[in-house]
Simulated assay, not measured.
Amino acid sequence: MALHLIKLCVGCGSPEDLEYWIAERLEEKKRRDEPVEQYHVTRMVPKRIEEITGGGSLYWVIQGMVQCRQRVLDIRPFLDGEGIQRCRLVLEPQVIRTEWQPRRPFQGWRYLKPEDVPGDIRAGSDTGDLPDHMRRELTELGLL
């Protein structure tokens, strides 16, 4: 069974912001003739790599709510220029919207068990078509 990660998406106001940022970074890499892959660098290296790369995702907390996810393709530990251990979470560039789930702030990433994972939202569903402000209010009221 796949294990997932959850992380705050700092500086991002919406899944659309995240998609725009990803597209910009991938285009920049293409212009520089670098490998065109999306990754997120983090300080701590997960110990349960095989469980995560075996179908797991990185769930993004945006504005206090889990709102979307990206599938984790690979986890690559490395030493940075100062000799500090870090890792690249190589992610599928596609951002998948999820049901909103409130989360308090935390540092770094956390493991997210399959039973705690919010469901995906399919395009054209009633929930997915709600404006963000309405969706946030209904989620905070416990109606979604």
Rank of each mutant, 00 (worst) to 15 (best):
D17A: 13
R88D: 06
Y111L: 07
W60T: 07
D132K: 03
K113I: 06
S125V: 12
Y20T: 04
I121K: 03
Q63G: 15
P46N: 07
Q38W: 03
L112T: 09
D80N: 15
L18W: 04
I75E: 01
D132P: 04
Q85H: 12
G142F: 03
R76N: 11
R86D: 02
F106M: 11
Y20P: 00
R103N: 09
Y20E: 05
L144H: 08
E82P: 08
R103H: 10
E28H: 06
W60H: 11
F78L: 02
E115L: 12
R71S: 02
Y20Q: 10
A123T: 04
M44R: 15
C87A: 12
Y59L: 07
D116C: 06
R43W: 01
P93G: 09
G108F: 11
I52V: 11
S125G: 13
C87M: 07
E50L: 05
G108W: 08
H133P: 01
I75Y: 04
T42V: 15
R31Y: 04
A23Q: 10
V61T: 14
V61D: 08
W21Y: 07
E99Y: 12
R71W: 08
E24C: 01
C87E: 07
D74I: 02
E51K: 04
P46M: 00
L79S: 12
G124K: 07
Y59I: 10
W100I: 03
V41W: 00
P35W: 03
K47F: 03
E27W: 01
Y39H: 10
G128P: 07
I62E: 06
R103I: 00
P114Q: 06
P131G: 02
F78I: 02
H133A: 11
R69V: 10
L141E: 11
R103F: 14
Q101K: 15
P114S: 14
Q85T: 06
V41R: 08
L138P: 01
E92A: 06
K30H: 13
R104M: 12
V117W: 00
E24F: 01
R86Y: 06
L58F: 13
E140I: 05
K30E: 14
W60N: 13
E16L: 12
R103G: 04
E51A: 05
D126K: 11
R110E: 15
E99G: 10
V95I: 05
P131L: 12
D120C: 12
R43T: 09
L138E: 14
D129F: 05
M44Y: 13
T127P: 01
S57Y: 06
L130C: 00
Y111T: 09
R86S: 04
H133Y: 06
Q38G: 01
W100G: 05
K29G: 00
S14H: 06
I84F: 01
R43P: 01
G64R: 14
L143R: 13
G119D: 10
V90T: 00
V72C: 12
R76C: 13
G81Y: 09
M134C: 02
A23Y: 05
Q63K: 15
L89C: 05
V90S: 03
I52D: 06
H133R: 07
L73I: 03
M65F: 15
T139I: 12
V90Y: 12
Q63C: 13
P93L: 07
V72W: 10
L112V: 09
E82F: 07
G124F: 12
R48D: 13
V61M: 13
